[in-house]
């Protein structure tokens, strides 16, 4: 007797991966860096991440409901928590709770859902959120607790929820801040870096480890990180060779601030980045170059967020311009 079958389009094999898996792997790859950061800065790092996640999920659910989209697949895709964690990693661990709230409103509501939600956002939501709070609340975001004297939990809670921590009194300048201030006062790079124990290289290494795992898992592609490296070298190396006293070395740039995190986790955001191989290379290079330029000539100590946002705006153009030659077409 003939038998009937349900139809379905080719390919019939199970899908190799899912959005949830991709986002989940990126979150996992953040672990070494988050662990090291927590060891240095205390549980505030985790508290900020948890706060941002909570706000992100809440806002995501609200926006999905408002836009009439199904909640379950989109809440479960882990893209909102990833945005939140990347955003939180840029905050000082004792930042007040409303920083995360404001940042997530900017990221989830404005940068993501008002552009059409997952897959449609033009700009990296985490960086939109961070850029907004950085510009709006410079004072709250500038001070980091000293590395060797972690804040006691009580003071942390008081600072995050009560606004009681005297930032200026306890805060220690980050190496990038120090460099900027000291150079501004006419000192040389060597003098400015006198107190820098080079410890942040370890954090950069931790991010790099996670990034390498993502490369091995084929979650990210090599083009963006290599592009960032090239971009940093292209700008920082000539400046440094021109005047080693006035300009930090490429190594310093690569190992400080958010550059390693940005190269592997932020600039590799697929949605807002370029999608063609050569576009990605150039995208990364733009991020690297912009970061060094902002650090050297701009008004802010770090420039990863600005670099990423600027290149986000260029991504569609890059993709159009650098479209690969299809197989069998003339060169």
């Amino acid at each position: 007797m003939a038998r009937e079958f349900r139809l379905g389009g080719a390919p019939h094999l199970p899908a190799a991966t899912s959005v949830r898996t991709v986002m989940g792997k990126v979150l996992l790859a953040l672990l070494p860096g988050v662990a090291l950061s927590t060891a240095w800065h205390g549980p505030g790092v985790l508290l900020q991440a948890a706060l941002a996640c909570a706000f992100a999920l809440l806002l995501e659910a609200a926006m999905l409901r408002l836009r009439g989209r199904p909640l379950r697949p989109f809440l479960g895709d882990l893209s909102a928590p990833l945005t939140a964690v990347l955003f939180a990693l840029c905050l000082p661990p004792w930042a007040p709770w409303w920083i995360a709230a404001v940042g997530m409103v900017a990221a989830i509501v404005f940068a993501k859902h008002l552009y059409g939600g997952l897959g449609y956002n033009l700009f990296n939501p985490a960086m939109v959120g961070y850029a907004l709070v950085l510009v709006a609340f410079t004072r709250e975001l500038s001070g980091w607790p000293p590395l060797d004297a972690p804040i006691p939990p009580g003071a942390l809670l008081d600072g995050v929820f009560g606004g009681g921590v005297p930032w200026d009194a306890m805060a220690q300048a980050t190496p990038l801040d120090t460099l900027r201030d000291q150079l501004g006062q006419g000192r040389t790079v060597a003098e400015a870096q006198a107190g820098d124990d080079g410890r942040s290289a370890w954090l950069a290494l931790a991010w790099t480890l996670g990034g390498l795992w993502l490369l091995q898992q084929r979650v990210i592609h090599w083009h963006v990180p290599v592009g960032v490296l090239a971009g940093v070298l292209a700008v920082a190396l000539p400046l440094w060779l021109y005047d080693t006293g006035r300009h930090a070395s490429p190594w310093f740039h690569l190992t400080h601030g958010a550059l390693a995190l940005g190269a592997f986790f932020i600039a590799t955001d697929p949605v807002s980045g370029a999608a063609t191989p050569r576009g990605r290379l150039l995208f990364g290079a733009g991020v690297g170059a912009m970061t060094v330029l902002v650090r050297t000539f701009g008004a802010y100590p770090d420039g990863v967020a600005f670099g990423v946002l600027l290149m986000n705006a260029c991504a569609p153009l890059l993709d159009r311009w650098l479209k690969p030659r299809p197989f069998g077409h003339a060169r």
Binding site: G9, G68, R69, P70, P73, G116, G117
Partner: peptide, 10 residues
């Protein structure tokens, strides 16, 4: 034309 499964609304 393929029928979008979830993104019909979109």
């Amino acid at each position: 034309r393929p029928l979008p499964r979830l993104t019909a609304l979109v």
